[in-house]
Design a protein around this nucleic acid. Structure first.
Length: 338
RNA sequence: GGGUAGGUUGAGCAGGUGGUGAGCUCCGCUGACUGUAGAUCAGCCGUCUUUCGACUGUGGGGGUUCGAUUCCCUCCCUGCCCA
């Protein structure tokens, strides 16, 4: 899922997203409720009409902002009070209000409000946040407004195997439509992420509901997760790094701002069929970034989203035809740090 | 020709009225980014050195002085005003 926090995947139109192969996108409860507000979007016909995206939308609950905006919020057992990063006003988010907002937005998949913490915190703190997340999960289900809207629960527990096992069991025991793994890609090591996914995968066993790894990932992370049963991802990396000049290719990452690229007449990736690769040279993109032309952001984002979605499509196909291993080795090798 | 204001590290500046000028912003170079407070942030950006540190540098030349970016002479260059 490309990430469109504020009802916009930065630099792309819905048409761009479709062409890039996007089937579903993510938007954010916290941001959209601050501005333009959930009620206004509801009056305007809901989020799909508002942003002119007719495909599925998953809305994140604001749980990530409990983590990323830690200095601007207070958590208690009932919910979270945020000081708006826009104007300083106070906003209360509870599990019930998060579900209400997402019902007003009219997203296809709603996420429960959760609390993720730095996995490096003392075990007691990680446990407290996990148990709170479990209580909030049950309250969220009780508060679901639109029966047609799917609701996913979120597994927490940091990088502690016992806590993760406990959390996976607790969330899986509830009648959610899908199971998300949260609290990863927040600074833990690659090994810790893999080990945590192993534990959660084992705990979920033969559960057939879709499994969503939140906030991941890098090209290499996709393989780590796919091998451990993950079906769905969202990540800001493809769009964020594109805006700072980094593009992803089968040969690894390329920084379009590097001086040598100014004389490179070839496409970003000759195997990619996106508009940027079909039409423009690396040298042109290098120029656009230096000149701070807005087209640079769009073309680089079009490429990264196209390439990333194509990579996942290739991974899916490779699982069916037995070529998964070679694909993984080639991509992971290309992105390995020197 | 006369007058006037200037000449500082790629660019633009700050500073400095006899006692150690490497400070800022651009540009440039490299890196980072994982459920987006991010078209952002960080490091470097005279020479040598991994670091510490050393050295060089205030248009050119000369003079005074223990010591000159500062004072004196002279030349060069630039903006503006007048003729």
């Amino acid at each position: 899922m490309p990430v469109g926090t504020q009802a916009s995947v930065k630099a792309l139109t819905p048409g761009d997203l479709r062409t890039a192969g996007a089937e579903i996108i993510l938007a954010n409860t916290y941001h959209l409720n601050l501005r333009p507000t959930a009620e206004r979007i509801a009056r305007l016909g809901g989020l799909h009409r508002f942003m002119a995206w007719d495909g599925p939308i998953l809305t994140d609950s604001g749980g990530f902002q409990v983590f990323s905006l830690a200095r601007l919020r207070r958590v208690d057992d009932d919910g979270v009070t945020f000081t708006s990063h826009i104007d300083g006003s106070e906003h209360r988010l509870t599990p019930e209000r998060a579900m209400e907002i997402q019902a007003l937005l009219g997203s296809d998949i709603a996420m429960v409000l959760d609390q993720l913490v730095d996995p490096g915190l003392p075990a007691a703190d990680v446990r407290e946040a996990m148990e709170r997340t479990h209580r909030w999960a049950a309250r969220s289900l009780a508060a679901r407004g639109d029966p047609a809207q799917a609701v996913f629960g979120i597994v927490q527990g940091g990088v502690d195997a016992d806590l993760r096992r406990e959390s996976a069991s607790a969330i899986a025991a509830l009648p959610f439509d899908g199971i998300a793994v949260g609290g990863l890609s927040v600074g833990e090591s690659k090994d810790q992420m893999a080990a945590t996914l192993d534990v959660v995968g084992d705990a979920l066993g033969e559960d057939q509901r879709p499994r969503y790894l939140m906030g991941v990932g890098s090209p290499a992370d996709f393989f780590t997760a796919v091998e451990r049963g993950i079906d769905l991802f969202d990540c800001v990396l493809p769009t964020r790094v594109a805006r700072t000049g980094q593009v992803w290719t089968d040969a690894g990452r390329l920084n379009l701002r590097n001086s040598a690229v100014q004389d490179d007449p070839g496409p970003i990736d000759p195997a990619c069929g996106c508009e940027a690769c079909r039409t423009h040279s690396r040298a042109y993109l290098a120029h656009l970034f230096r000149a701070e032309e807005l087209l640079a952001y769009r073309l680089a984002t079009v490429h990264n989203v196209t390439w990333t979605l194509a990579l996942l499509a290739r991974a899916r196909a490779s699982l069916a035809n037995g070529s998964y291993g070679p694909l993984r080795d080639a991509i992971v090798g290309g992105f390995a740090r020197p």
